[in-house]
Design a protein around this nucleic acid. Structure first.
Lengths: 194, 194
DNA sequence: CCTACCGATCGGTAGG
DNA sequence: CCTACCGATCGGTAGG
């Protein structure tokens, strides 16, 4: 077990907000709901966050950052495309599993970001996806992957990965490692040329 | 092209509600938004639907019905498990593609159903999923599928299918048939024993 | 971090 | 299908 870290009030609010947004959705969660769960008066939340949307944006960009941090060292390695993709998939799944609530919010509620945050978010996402598209393209060129539209394959891959938070449970019968490993196999088998 | 069907006002409201729920989410869509898009006063909506939740439940159970109607004849055939599963996957994907908006609402907003509807919904879903689990179990027994936890495989399969509505577009470069066919291959390759 | 409060908007109803 | 309206709740601010 990891040593329990003392949490600031701000961190407490952030964590509980993440849970509530995941469970009920961003727009169905009120600042009053959140305040009640934290044990504060609603107005007190605004000493820590300037708006409900600010909490959402911290969640979304926090996950985006983690995805980037996880993939960069992998992408710089000298490896065949399928091995690189395997590592990239495992890294992506790890981020989701280790931040299940935040990942769910990232995936479903980004559309409630305000205009400028939304723009940045979509740009980051497109950039991240293009890393995977490039890996797929290389794999096809090397004759390892099936020759299917690479954007289609990229979407398939993310589809398969992005629901992990729905059914991963620390108490479940499969460990995080097993899940990452099995799911990566599932995906790679799906695109490898037979 | 199919002959354009004359739509009742009720059908118009239903269709526009489905679009709005898909775009903005159920709880972020107000009856006033809906009325405006339809071209009515908000109160007039209540001549056609007794509540906002009733519209949601019609969307969710409508899609549930279609999934059941599509799978029943397939499930009764005498076929090897992998062929049966192939047909089941294609049928499921067809329903999603042909009802992209409603399918998105079904997948994301079912949690806003009221208590008794929610109970029925979850029961139907569990039942439907168990058909797939049984097919997978048979495939494993016949030695066709990889011997992995069948619930895990079922979740993988639905994960891979249930985002189709996100990126399927009638104007896109792949037809509905191509998508259903390719995605089914992707999934089957993922679970077939190599 | 709280009390007190704002204007806006919500789902829905009465009555025609 | 509309006018008129209800009580409840929303995100957020002023001021301490």
């Amino acid at each position: 077990m990891v040593a329990t870290k003392l949490k600031t009030r701000k961190e407490q609010i952030f964590e509980i907000a993440t849970q509530l947004f995941k469970e009920r959705g961003f727009s169905a969660t009120s600042m009053r709901d959140l305040a009640k769960q934290v044990g504060l008066e609603p107005a007190s939340l605004y000493s820590h966050f300037k708006s409900k949307e600010e909490i959402l944006s911290k969640i979304c960009f926090g996950i985006a950052d983690q995805f980037y941090i996880a993939i960069q060292p992998i992408n710089q390695k000298q490896l065949p495309a399928n091995e690189k993709l395997r590592q990239a998939l495992e890294a992506h799944i790890d981020v989701i599993i280790n931040n299940a609530d935040a990942a769910a919010v990232f995936l479903h509620d980004w559309k409630f970001l305000n205009e400028s945050n939304l723009e940045e978010f979509l740009s980051l996402r497109k950039n991240y996806e293009s890393i995977f598209i490039e890996l797929i393209r290389q794999g096809i060129k090397e004759g390892i992957f099936r020759d299917v539209n690479e954007k289609f394959l990229m979407m398939n891959i993310f589809s398969a990965m992005n629901w992990v938070y729905e059914w991963y449970s620390p108490a479940g019968s499969m460990s995080a490692e097993e899940i990452a490993n099995n799911l990566t196999n599932f995906i790679l088998n799906g695109i490898i040329k037979l």
